[in-house]
Design a protein around this nucleic acid. Sequence first.
DNA 1: ACGACTTTGTGCGTTCGTTCACAAGTGCCT
DNA 2: AGGCACTTGTGAACGAACGCACAAAGTCGT
Lengths: 235, 235
Amino acid sequence: MSDEQETRRGIPDATVARLPVYLRTLSVLADAGVATVSSEELACAAGVNSAKLRKDLSHLGSYGVRGVGYDVEYLIYQVGRELGLTQDWPVAIVGIGNLGHALAGYAGFATRGFRVVALFDVDPSVVGRVVGGLLVRPLGELEQVVRSEPIAIGVVATPAGPAQGVCDRLVACGVRSVLNFAPCVLTVPDGVDVRKVDLSTELQILAYHEQRKALRRIVQQGDDAPRARVGGVAQ
Amino acid sequence: MSDEQETRRGIPDATVARLPVYLRTLSVLADAGVATVSSEELACAAGVNSAKLRKDLSHLGSYGVRGVGYDVEYLIYQVGRELGLTQDWPVAIVGIGNLGHALAGYAGFATRGFRVVALFDVDPSVVGRVVGGLLVRPLGELEQVVRSEPIAIGVVATPAGPAQGVCDRLVACGVRSVLNFAPCVLTVPDGVDVRKVDLSTELQILAYHEQRKALRRIVQQGDDAPRARVGGVAQ
DNA sequence: ACGACTTTGTGCGTTCGTTCACAAGTGCCT
DNA sequence: AGGCACTTGTGAACGAACGCACAAAGTCGT
């Protein structure tokens, strides 16, 4: 695929989802003083197949050197640039409960171009307090603040009930990317991206596999004589 | 595919990942007093294609009635059973910082068979405090506690540094499912499942798409003439 | 300068997931 | 009883993603 096409069409979603992992792995290597890394080493550290890693990186361009590997610093720069981390992304968090509190103080935000610039809540007992060095504002000021300081990404950390309403208001203010921690599906117009982070969902997926593993053990025990094809069960 | 095969081989990962969403959507409907729902309605509420929803549900069995739809209560029971939510899953959280604090108090845990039974931290200023009704224990007691009250799922909410060590200790105690909030890749032996929740990754994915949208707007505006090279981004 | 060795970038077959489209089944109304 | 309107469950086509395997391209030692 030509570079022109690549730029126009974009990178496969599956690849984009892995780039942050590569980036973090690379940062660890850089901090350890590693200057060059092969796809095999990097893939192993990132927990993926090396061919997949190479194909992923090839979507960004040809930044490797055959027989040598990738220059760590240079690759960090290229991946970061592709992800848009060379820019500054102002973030607003709505809903400063337990989770919002944790998010406001999360160091990971600051490290990579993300800057929390505003916190909002409806609860009068929370409004006015300072969390993570920022004043918590009443939700009513959302429109005004977002207009004065353009917000790129809105984080919804409210309960499920008010989440859609908050999201609608964010979108109305021009926010086109939303990170949703509320346990519900958010509906947005075309051109707006939503990603959901759901602790409960993850736990339930783990529970499914856990149940499966328990079941398999039982089958294995009681399955001495007849049907011996226990080995074939594994994924 | 026969039911026998289905039970043995399991349900596709992509389907398992959506079941919790269906379950929550169904619960909302049930609370609203809805007795019966069609695949089209449920799919819309859950934000997926109706054919996909039907195929997903068909993996659990034939629980729909043609011409009518699905019985909400019955489907809730079946999905919950498939996910293993009829059982009780004891959960331990390691790392009671901002995030661990939020997790310990998260209501979503309790609602569906998950029961937080132990909290651990290394920080002496946190150990001994009561969070979400539970005493925070020193990390040294982990082995002892996990043995006396079998833990099904371990939640790692520590910084990246100690995460792998904590994970290893959990696995050594017999924990076979880990939910990882630390920004790093956890390596575990076969038979252990790990799922990662990463706020920073999600933000970076949003940033990528946000950058893309911004770029596209620029191209659209300045693309009257021949098409100069798009922002010179790729090279 | 040259050959042996290493590692990238990618073409290709395979697997997994999504979507369409429709036959088969169900309830309702006449 | 029979026809009609509606909905499920699924075969089949399509598309995305994965991983193997290898040629191309580079380094390093002699």
